[in-house]
Design a protein around this nucleic acid. Structure first.
Lengths: 354, 354
DNA sequence: GTGAAAGCGCTAACAC
DNA sequence: GTGTTAGCGCTTTCAC
């Protein structure tokens, strides 16, 4: 158990308060009761239009804003939503977060981010740790495969759940068909004539399975089989979902006596690493090696990287909208929205030379 | 004024509460008063060690955790810090945010992110809008140049302030010497023999000046002057700090009858766009054109891009540590920490051919 | 060392 | 339509 770090003592409260008007200030200034102020300001019925106007005017004059903590305490709702992502600085994740934040801000919700980089953070997330405990009304998990009972425990705590990425049982989710992604990229390579295809997968240090890699890999294998081919597992390497990790992984592949003629990297960032490694060893792309990634990262076009496009900001925005609808009391079925994907062929893929 | 969106009605409260233990539950189970529970759990003095142990045990058994809203209401501190950034999905910003979040989580603080993409969001930030008002104990602004009176108003609201990026008057800040960055990159080009150097600047739709571009530009101009040269303002173009924006900006430069022999892009992402544009028009790098950026983005190495390295994650982490120290009651002088930078020469810069 | 009680600022019954 | 009042769950004097 982490050391209890109490709030430092001291009457921060009183210093701060000076400037802030409370609901009572507004009430007395407007010559009504606090209840009326509350109703008027929140647009509730049973307030005479004239009173509402008067109260609003006073509130503006006093620059009054309800204290969210007090409000949360009274209503049980915090008007903020949490986003849990494996790493905050990945291209994919930062775009999802950006999409979420934009929608949340628009709707008056705060966005609190939780990086799941360390094991500790993952465990805490579910333990009902500080980050979630009564601080957020809902949780958006991005590419996190929560086990069923953790799902339930979160639910028991009254947290609304929405997922971005793979399907999560009983949770509304938005993402792409990752198996199809794997199939699409791989078929492209096979159609070009490639028969020995390397796969740069990625593990993330994350106790919850990060299932995207598996799904895309499954698609990779499907594609082989449906063309009557058998994938070669000795051509599978781990790129950790980073440029650098993939660089090293690709080195291992290219060092072989029988290197693959094409490499499928499960993300564009990893594909960048592959391209780099190839270049450093004088392996020409696409002449000696075809490379394809996934994401359609802004830099993919610069490198001429073939890839599978997905509209990442939209995933985040869609998830946030769903969350807000749920929090707004709408019945949302825990369904799946598969966003379309499409193959983008650039100059990094071509028929094998030999 | 935005439409008042009240919390939807409904007894969410009671449903939720079922599972959660309150301080009273702990008190009665441990057979002490709530005051004692509060003291014991927060490590305050004047609690018999035996009592403390007992209370802790009960708290764990009941999976008790203080409700942050109630705690906030009573103490005035929310144990969360807000981060305001111009765009959440830029490489630089996402790394800063990641650095901040990691440190905050470690210290038990929530990280709430605020994107300043729209004008509205900026205005609201300062208006004491919902996002900040009593929700966060401190605000970390990243590359945001707040005017002096906004600074004061934030301060009046009792918000602690820390800045990442350029110096902000009266606020502790961490960043790099952006003028030096401009000088370093430009001198490298000049030393190589370049005399006509294009500058890809960047504006971000942000009412607060985003001063980084100006500073780096100043360094660019300094470097010229100290070599007895005069920069050519017709060679300045706007790349919006995006790959795509820089692509178009570079096109304009390369289309000229007298194109520059080198281009300094104020960020690596923009440099990528320049490289792309050059490639698309058959301009060879570095033979026909030298390109240099700033950041040392992971992809810079892949493209062989020369650049000015900075340690971005560290900026975020450092800022967060400073913030937490301030919030912890330490006296922190509003000083400046300049993180070191260094020139990284790769293959995108060389002497001009003619 | 511990407990009783008075808030913190707001919302939601309930009365009028 | 509006006001009164009892909480929400915690912290913090102030007695003991």
């Amino acid at each position: 158990m982490p050391a209890p770090t109490p709030n430092p003592p001291g009457p921060i409260n009183t210093e701060t308060r000076r400037a802030r008007a409370t609901i009572e200030d507004v009430a007395s200034a407007a010559d009504v009761s606090v209840a009326t102020v509350s109703r008027a300001l929140r647009g509730l019925p049973n307030v005479a239009e004239s009173t509402r106007v008067k109260v609003q005017r006073v509130a503006v004059a006093l620059n009054y804003r309800a204290d969210p903590a007090a409000s949360r305490l009274a209503t049980g709702r915090s008007r903020s939503i949490a986003v849990a992502v494996p790493l905050l600085n990945g291209w994919y994740f930062s775009h999802v977060v950006a999409g979420i934040e934009a929608v949340c801000a628009e709707a008056g919700y705060d966005t609190i981010v939780i990086g799941l980089g360390s094991e500790r953070s993952c465990v805490e997330l579910l333990d009902g740790s500080d980050a979630l405990h009564r601080r957020a009304d809902g949780l958006i998990v991005v590419d996190v495969a929560l086990p069923a009972d953790d799902l339930r425990s979160l639910d028991d705590r009254g947290l609304a759940l929405v997922a971005v990425g793979p399907v999560l049982d009983g949770v509304p989710s938005i993402g792409i068909d990752d198996v199809a992604v794997g199939r699409l990229a791989t078929s492209h390579l096979i159609d070009l004539g490639h028969r020995r295809i390397g796969l740069v997968r990625g593990e993330v240090a994350n106790p919850f399975g990060f299932v995207v890699p598996q799904l895309r890999q499954r698609g990779f294998e499907h594609a082989h089989r449906s063309h009557g081919l058998r994938p070669d597992p000795t051509l599978y390497v781990d790129g950790s979902f980073t440029v650098h990790g993939a660089y090293e992984a690709a080195e291992r592949l290219l060092e072989r006596d029988d290197p693959p003629t094409a490499i499928f990297a499960l993300s564009d960032e990893m594909a960048f690493g592959v391209v780099h490694a190839a270049r450093d060893r004088g392996v020409r792309i696409p002449d000696d090696l075809s490379v394809i990634g996934v994401d359609d990262h802004d830099v993919a076009a610069v490198l001429g990287l073939s890839t599978v496009h997905q509209d990442v900001d939209q995933h985040g925005a869609g998830a946030a909208r769903t969350m807000i609808a749920i929090l707004g009391g709408q019945e949302i079925s825990p369904g799946r929205h598969d966003d379309p994907i499409r193959l983008v062929v650039r100059s990094s893929t071509a028929a094998p030379r030999r």
